[in-house]
Design a protein around this nucleic acid. Structure first.
Length: 501
RNA sequence: ACCUCCGUAGCUCAAUUGGCAGAGCAGGCGGCUCUUAACCGCUUGGUUGUAGGUUCGAGUCCUACCGGGGGUACCA
């Protein structure tokens, strides 16, 4: 920071010292503030509406307001200076007149204030000749001196590296960036409201876990000194939330951070936010109905519409959404029937016969998943529930009664992006144990993402879990969708970046 | 991890074929009582990401490294 002492900072430091030399505190604790910028404008406009329509000249309102904010622009014109301040609510213009505040007070503004400083001002609200609601300042004070300059006012901060590393500058100077994060907050808030209204209770489960599970991913590992034990940052909340279903809470959800020790790209950040909910006495069909209503409801609450343009597509979120079995979807888009090519050898052969670019995979289930990714997924523009996934890649989902190679599972696709995952939860402890054993075998065979056996979870299931449906929705991806952002880094305030050396 | 593009003043960007590193904003000084990207005049500011190399001469070409974007791989 000290090496940042370029001439601009040096100049600001000089001004800081000047303030101190005058016996004033450039970083006071107390703020004299009666209105936010938006409130000041609202109060003035309310007063204006009360005036008779045929008033000849706009009289002084006489409304006094004390406002505070960051100085975003200073426009001196000799004996009159306009300034614009910004706070979270918006922005507001201040007018400083030399003949009104006096020569010394007027000069002080020019001498010690820079764009980026925080200022508090008290005065009377009026509307300028050019029509802008403005505070005619009669007292003002420095609230905090900024020692480094803000990025350029017109272009804002463009450099992506700087925008992520110094997000505060991005938020300050790029309104559209601020908008993305307000949308994100709105999504989480609307989702909570929806779930709360539907009888779900919000809970918190461990982030630091002795054993990871609930998803196919490599974990971050750490060491707990007091217990001298390896611990993992959770890759999912699933197994703990289902323990709560065993415990009779019936409808639970958690919105929290998951961690996966994997590559990072435009759709993956090593820590990301997931909403998981579990609903006892419901199955995945019930969950579909709830999900489409929830997401449509969120879009309506946050964007005011269920029609959106995102990732280059026009999307209509109005329920009901299309239901498409994975088998039908793959058949339509690749010509391969996974009911016919129902084992590893015949599916491999079918893929080769079609000349598809599918990499080598160890199981039938993973080949099916590849067909989904390569052939079906790119065609899924309108919101679609893709149903019934291979059991091999769904170790926590209940098998379909009439087709045990498949599970009662769905994924949500919107504008070709996977946005959520759900199933009828496997509550048969013996079947669950077998599935875990299968995972353990796959892990031993080199699949680093296969889940470990979780005896403690089996123990919970042994005590009985009701039929339950579970859903996971990626908050980051939902935000990308609703805010139409191409990269996950654009919807995470502080995305993971390499540490500067 | 690999491929590819990018890195120039505090910020946004220029710089012809390898030939004097420039502009706008910000800053400084001066002027200006309705501006809002205020305006007008003058002006400070550079180890061109870092380290090497080729060359009479490198922002520009080559190599390595650092950081970032995009893609592939991996991955829900």
């Amino acid at each position: 920071m000290t090496e940042d002492l370029n001439e601009l900072t040096a100049e600001r430091l000089r001004k800081l010292e000047q303030v101190r030399a005058q016996g004033l505190d450039p970083y006071p604790a107390h703020v004299d503030r009666t209105h936010s910028t938006a409130d000041a404008v609202a109060v003035f406009e309310a007063w204006e509406r009360e005036q008779p329509a045929d008033t000849p000249a706009p009289p002084a309102s006489g409304i006094e307001a004390a406002v505070a904010g960051r100085l975003m622009s200073l426009r001196p014109h000799g004996k009159l200076t306009f300034a614009t301040i910004q706070d979270a609510a918006g922005s507001l213009q201040l007018a400083f007149r030399r003949d009104y505040i006096g020569v010394d007070a007027y000069r002080w503004l020019q001498e010690v204030f820079d764009r980026g400083d925080f200022i508090g001002a008290r005065g009377t609200l009026f509307r300028t000749r050019t029509g802008e609601v403005t505070v005619q300042v009669d007292q003002y004070a420095m609230l905090a001196k900024a020692l480094n300059p803000l990025p350029e006012k017109w272009h804002g901060l463009k450099d992506t590296d700087a925008r992520y590393r110094q997000r505060y500058l991005d938020l300050l100077t790029n309104p559209e960036s601020r908008q993305v994060f307000l949308i994100r907050t709105g999504i989480v808030s609307a989702m909570r409201r929806f779930l709360d209204e539907h009888g779900f209770i919000e809970v918190e489960t461990p982030v630091l876990q002795p054993l990871y599970g609930g998803a196919a991913a490599r974990p971050f590992t750490t060491h707990y000194n007091a217990l001298d034990q390896e611990m993992y940052l959770r890759i999912s909340d699933e197994l703990y939330l289902k323990r709560l279903i065993v415990g009779g809470l019936d409808r639970v959800y958690e919105i929290g951070r998951d961690f996966r020790n994997e590559g990072l790209d435009t759709t993956h950040n090593p820590e990301f936010t997931m909403m998981e909910c579990y609903w006892a006495y419901a199955d995945y069909r019930d969950m579909m109905a709830l999900t489409e209503r929830m997401i449509a409801n969120i879009a309506q609450a946050v964007l005011g519409t269920m029609q959106l343009e995102t990732h280059g597509h026009q999307v209509d979120l109005t329920p009901p959404w299309r239901r498409l079995s994975l088998r039908d979807g793959i058949l339509e888009t690749s010509g391969i029937d996974i009911y016919v090519a129902s084992d590893y050898a015949s599916l491999t052969e079918a893929i080769q016969a079609k000349g598809l670019r599918i990499g080598h995979k160890p199981t039938w289930g993973q080949l099916v998943n590849e067909l989904l990714d390569e052939c079906l997924q790119p065609t899924l523009i309108q919101p679609t529930f893709v149903l019934d996934y291979p059991t091999e890649i769904s170790p926590l989902a209940k098998k379909k009664p009439d087709a045990p190679q498949l599970t009662e599972r769905f994924e949500i696709f919107i504008a070709t992006r996977e946005t959520g995952n759900a199933f009828s939860e496997l509550n048969d402890p013996l079947d669950q144990r077998e599935r875990f054993m299968q995972q353990v075998k796959m892990h031993a065979a080199g699949d680093e993402e296969a889940m470990p056996l979780d005896e403690d979870y089996i123990l919970a299931l042994m005590h009985g879990m009701p039929p339950t449906a579970g859903l996971g929705v990626g908050i980051d991806r939902l935000t990308m969708l609703l805010a139409d952002r191409p990269s996950i880094r654009e919807v995470i305030l502080f995305p993971q970046l390499r540490t500067l050396k």
